[in-house]
Design a protein around this nucleic acid. Structure first.
Length: 567
RNA sequence: GGCCUCGUAGUUCAAUGGAUAGAAUAGAAGCCUUCUAAGCUUUAGAUCUUGGUUCGAUUCCAAGCGGGGUCACCA
């Protein structure tokens, strides 16, 4: 597609059009395939855009002879529209080796930091979004040639843990209760419940607040009285995280922990005080972001403990030292936007090398649509519950269908449903999550996309002739409108992968795939493949659907979704 | 209150300043002896308000209204 665009741009240049030339797609297929708007040119020449367009057409007409790719040029008001030669276009697209080759637009080495759950706290629906978004972005970066490091920063020290441990110890026989918890999920649910208890007490009860703060200090000093419980419950959380990561099909190259950052972080801040980077204020050490149009933040609190801010100073130092990334993308929800601005500013002083390399990749809130919540721990919707729920619904729909590895396939469909529903919305926008819609098998959904691949694979399985013949050069006779629209969509794949990197947004891919699916289905209804009117047409269509399948599978892969052959 | 952000069909989402604002879902009407009906076709339905910039504004600017976030010892 890019080649064709370049040809047209060259053609326009050759007749004296200067400046940046941008081609758009006309609103309707019968109006041509690519369009050039004459507004800018008209302004330059002081003429009416429609007249300029007419003049251009005259010039262009005389140069079209001998050009295989272009069929004709028409004027629509102020637009000059180009019609591609359908047969040539089909040959070009279908004789590629792989429709899903991507632009190479590497930035070098990219670290994508995502998931970052805190131990001792529930893994909720918001974590699901960072896991899914982060994994997808990692793949999108890799796809265009970057070296990607998947990092995960897990919070295993801090007040949230103190709240949890305090919550556990409120029961007199807590040691016995703990012993009776056997499964990973049971333990995770228990931790979530006692965390909620501790959190509420911290807000309402002064005495509890004091006790929790004492526990917090003990965690930092690794006091023996709570060390055993801390270690045991930390392990519980980490095991549970592994289970979730595996279930959503993501993985990490490096797990960072707050526990490995707090000492170094404090040290960096204390040194920074000497250099005037940080200053004392009301017994705490702060970074005066207000000097830079931001806001002040506490880096070491008045008890001498490093806050999240100080730990992040250390984290960045470790990350740059270990991997020398060209960019670090922190996939974190939007409520931390202001925080990151201050933190990155402070980093410019403590780690000058990090300047312009640290990026906050903002994603929006996830909330459940009103009246749809049915399972909660405290105030959050658990990730695991949502995954289970999706599987239940899909199992229901699949009832009576006999397929090999049904369990695995159900899990894959459920994952596709959840992932797609999290990725189809623009990355920075909030998602109002409707579980019914997310796992619905109809319309703009993950299963709808999987269905395309299943249908294609089914036809290919039945077409042994094609499979044995291999892929010789495709002969194109004529091209139906549905075929053309599908071909054009396939041709746009590389551009879309590039856009997703530039805009840092997987929803570009999701949207593209949905359109691909719609165009395939429309083709499927109108153009029989195995029963085509001739062998030539059949082979052409087999090649077309095979490429559609490849583009779809590759695109789904960029979203972290695994296609299936049968459903 | 300061700063940031978002306001588009009943609902959930799209639209580098460009052609008649697109989808999905819910509603209405059709299509399975035919490659998987988890599908397809038809139909109805929307840009918060008021100004400004522009040949042209959902998009840019200003004000207002309405949500959300954030603003010191949580992460």
């Amino acid at each position: 597609m890019d080649l064709i665009k370049q040809q047209i741009i060259e053609l326009l240049k050759s007749i004296g059009v200067s400046g940046v030339i941008e081609l758009t797609t006309p609103p309707k297929p019968e109006m041509g395939d690519l369009a050039f708007a004459c507004f800018g040119l008209a302004k330059e020449q002081g003429k009416n855009p429609a007249e300029v367009a007419k003049d251009l057409k005259k010039e262009l007409d005389s140069r079209l002879r001998g050009n295989d790719a272009l069929e004709k040029v028409e004027v629509f008001g102020p637009y000059v529209n180009f019609y591609l030669n359908n047969v040539e276009l089909a040959k070009m697209v279908l004789n590629q080796k792989d429709p899903s080759t991507s632009f190479h637009s590497a930035q070098g080495k990219v670290m994508v930091e995502f998931a970052h759950p805190n131990t001792h706290k529930p893994v909720h629906i918001g974590h699901l979004r960072t896991m899914i978004t982060g994994e997808s972005m990692a793949r999108i970066f890799e796809n265009v040639g970057n070296k990607v490091v998947r990092a995960n920063y897990q919070g295993d020290v801090g007040m949230h843990i103190a709240k949890c441990l305090w919550g556990i110890m409120q029961d007199k026989d807590w040691e016995k209760i703990i012993k009776n918890l056997k499964t990973t999920s049971e333990r995770a649910i228990f931790l979530g419940q006692v965390y909620a208890r501790g959190g509420q007490a911290y807000e309402k009860d002064e005495q509890a607040k004091k006790e929790i703060e004492e526990i917090n200090a003990k965690i930092y000093s690794q006091d023996k009285s709570i060390r055993g419980l801390y270690k045991k419950t930390r392990k519980w959380s980490l095991n549970y995280f592994d289970y979730i990561y595996q279930r959503v099909d993501t993985h990490f190259d490096r797990f960072y922990f707050e526990s490995e950052c707090f000492e170094l972080g404090k040290k960096i801040v204390l040194e920074g005080v000497k250099n005037g980077i940080f200053e004392e204020s009301q017994g705490a050490i702060i970074f005066a972001g207000s000097k830079y149009g931001l806001h002040d933040r506490v880096f070491v609190n008045s008890k001498g403990l490093p806050t999240y801010e100080a730990k992040d100073m250390a984290l960045a130092r470790l990350q740059f030292k270990e991997y020398h990334p060209d960019f670090i993308y922190h996939v974190v929800a939007k409520e931390q936007t202001e925080y990151f601005k201050v933190m990155f500013k402070a980093l410019e002083f403590t780690l000058p090398n990090s300047k312009d390399k640290e990026k906050h990749l903002v994603y929006g809130w996830v909330s459940l649509k009103e009246g749809k919540m049915s399972s909660r721990t405290g105030q959050v919707i658990l990730a695991e519950w949502l995954l289970d729920e999706a599987e239940k619904k899909i199992t229901e729909v699949m009832k009576g269908r006999e397929i090999e590895n049904k369990e695995k396939i159900i899990r894959k469909i459920a994952n596709a449903a959840i992932k797609y529903s999290m990725l189809k919305t623009g990355i920075g926008n909030d998602i109002i999550f409707d579980i019914n819609e997310a796992v619905s098998l109809t319309g703009d959904s993950g299963p709808y996309l999987l269905y395309i691949v299943a249908r294609i694979k089914s036809i290919l399985r039945k077409s042994k002739a094609f499979l044995t013949a291999g892929r010789s050069k495709v002969v194109v006779g004529s091209v139906e409108p549905q075929e053309k629209s599908l071909i054009l969509q396939i041709a746009q794949f590389p551009e879309v992968t590039k856009e997703a990197v530039e805009k840092l947004d997987p929803s570009r891919i999701a949207k593209y795939l949905f359109e691909l699916a719609q165009k395939f289905n429309s083709f499927y209804e109108n153009c029989p493949v195995l029963q085509a009117e001739s062998v030539v047409v059949r082979d052409f269509r087999l090649q077309l659907i095979s490429m559609t399948g490849q583009a779809m599978e590759h695109g789904l892969g960029l979203l972290g979704i695994t296609a299936i052959d049968e459903m």
